[in-house]
Design a protein around this nucleic acid. Structure first.
Length: 440
RNA sequence: GUGGUUGUAGCUCAAUUGGCAGAGCAUCGGAUUGUGGUUCCGAGGGUUGCCGGUUCAAGCCCGGUCUACCACCCCA
């Protein structure tokens, strides 16, 4: 290797034209869907005060951040997510906020983690949030938006699905086992999160440590196994009835009725078939307060394509004033992998409209034509080589596969004409009328 | 941060037990087609990821390191 390192930093990507086209395609589709749902686009700074992120996620988060000091000795970080910035921005105008407020954005975000497939140190996310509406109708519409963003790429029911879970049901479940304190709840949610990746013995061990009672741990283990397999409202209700006589049935029914509203809304929005009730989704419950969901590609056990849920306490925590909110984010990395695998990216459309070739004696007239066509909105190339004769130019022109090749020979120009050649047509046209001809 | 797998031209890949680093595609140039992508000829491009060790000799063996990938950790 001579000279400088040619590869970007680990976890970062170069976007050569073909990659950039795919990225822009994704951004355009995201933006377009968000608009159809009535979301307004916003943006914020790429760096924020470090405390904005530690306040939300705790001091441990610094390990996962691109964090440093600026020259004014401020502790700052590249944003790892958009929600804190959103809360900060919206927090400035909470008192007069239109409700609901629906905002979206598309941003580059940074996390200092070990890169893997589907997870890089720099990535783009589509974020959408509904602020100021606590009804499940907001959760439902947000999930419908999440589904629409994937449908927009041509992804079908056989390609992806949404798993819907609920933090409040889990809190009720834990409460039924006498777990009330926030710390204990957190510890048990952690165990639940790792559930499927661990052996029953090892789970039993952790549960016994948490409950300080191995019989209770066993009961929790066995009944939770059943609850994790519940896929309907009735099945969930049955779990609570059968497995836990100490359950607060009134609170349960209250919550189930909210879940029912959510499912009905999804049904009315025509997306119920994409959604599976699945309480195995526990990830991120620490931060969410209600319904949570994740989008997964079918088949491969890859990383989630998107995730989100309700976070009604975050505004109070960060800006001191309560405000209900629900949001989700979808990343570009897993999506790009999926779209490439399914070959759902559109074919390359980088070809120019026209390539102008000419005998060098007509160079001046040819360049004038090129500029006239450009002014009319067409993309135009011509050879920058002052020596290349007509044949050489032509060879280069066809290699670029333009929609039209326009040829100016001395003879044609002397008659104020040019030859224009498309895929299946070939004509001699007045030089002056070329822009008009191309517009047809 | 821990463990494992990996790396040869821009891309896809060759190179017998350790024995002169190659091909196709791509790029650039030339010839031909006096205005067509073809065809033909040629060129550039590599300290075999990097550093060190063993050896008369290392792409190949050994150690380290980096990257990518995989499993952990984490996943906002």
């Amino acid at each position: 290797m001579k000279g400088i390192e040619r590869e970007p930093l680990p976890g970062f990507r170069d976007f050569e034209p073909a990659d950039c086209a795919q990225r822009n395609f994704i951004f355009n589709q995201w933006r377009s869907v968000a608009h159809t749902f009535g979301y307004e686009e916003f943006d914020g700074p790429i760096v924020e005060a470090l405390v904005l992120f530690t306040q939300k996620s705790g001091p441990e988060i610094v390990e996962q951040l691109f964090a440093f000091q600026d020259k004014g000795e401020r502790a700052i970080a590249l944003r790892p997510e958009m929600t804190p910035s959103l809360v900060r921005m919206v927090g400035k105008r909470l008192a007069t906020l239109k409700r609901p407020t629906k905002w979206f954005n598309i941003t580059e975000q940074f996390r200092y983690e070990r890169p893997q497939k589907g997870r890089l140190r720099s990535f783009y996310q589509f974020n959408a949030d509904i602020i100021g509406e606590s009804s499940s109708a907001a959760d439902a519409e947000l999930i419908a938006l999440a589904i629409a963003t994937f449908q927009k790429f041509g992804l079908k029911k056989e390609h992806f699905h949404v798993r819907l879970s609920d933090r409040q049901l889990w809190v009720l479940w834990l409460k039924a086992f006498g777990v009330n304190q926030e710390q204990e709840v957190g510890a048990l949610l952690g165990i639940l999160d790792k559930w499927e990746r661990r052996s029953p013995e090892s789970i039993q061990e952790d549960l016994t440590a948490s409950f300080k009672d191995s019989t209770k741990a066993t009961l929790f283990l066995n009944t939770t196994e059943v609850l994790r397999k519940a896929r309907t409202l009735d099945a969930i209700r049955e779990c609570f009835h059968n497995c836990q006589p100490s359950s607060d049935m009134e609170a349960l029914e209250q919550r189930l009725s909210e879940l029912k509203v959510l499912l009905q809304e999804l049904e009315s929005l025509g997306v119920r078939d994409w959604v599976t009730l699945d309480l195995t989704i526990v990830r991120g419950l620490a931060y969410y307060t209600g319904f949570v969901f994740e989008v997964f590609g079918n088949g491969d056990q890859g990383r989630a394509l998107a995730g989100g849920g309700r976070y009604d306490h975050l505004f109070e925590k960060l800006v001191g004033q309560p405000m209900p909110a629900v949001g989700f984010a979808a990343g570009d990395v897993t999506l790009t992998d999926l779209l490439r695998k399914q070959t759902l990216f559109p074919p390359d459309q980088s070809a120019v409209d026209c390539y102008v070739v000419f005998e060098q004696t007509e160079r001046q007239r040819a360049l004038l034509l090129a500029q006239q066509l450009r002014a009319a909105g067409f993309s135009v190339l011509y050879s920058l080589d002052l020596q290349k004769d007509l044949g050489k130019q032509q060879k280069k022109a066809y290699a670029d596969d333009p929609h039209y090749v326009i040829t100016l020979t001395h003879e044609l120009v002397s008659q104020a004409k040019a030859q224009i050649k498309g895929a299946e047509s070939e004509q001699i046209v007045d030089l002056k009328s070329l822009p008009e001809y191309l517009k047809q």
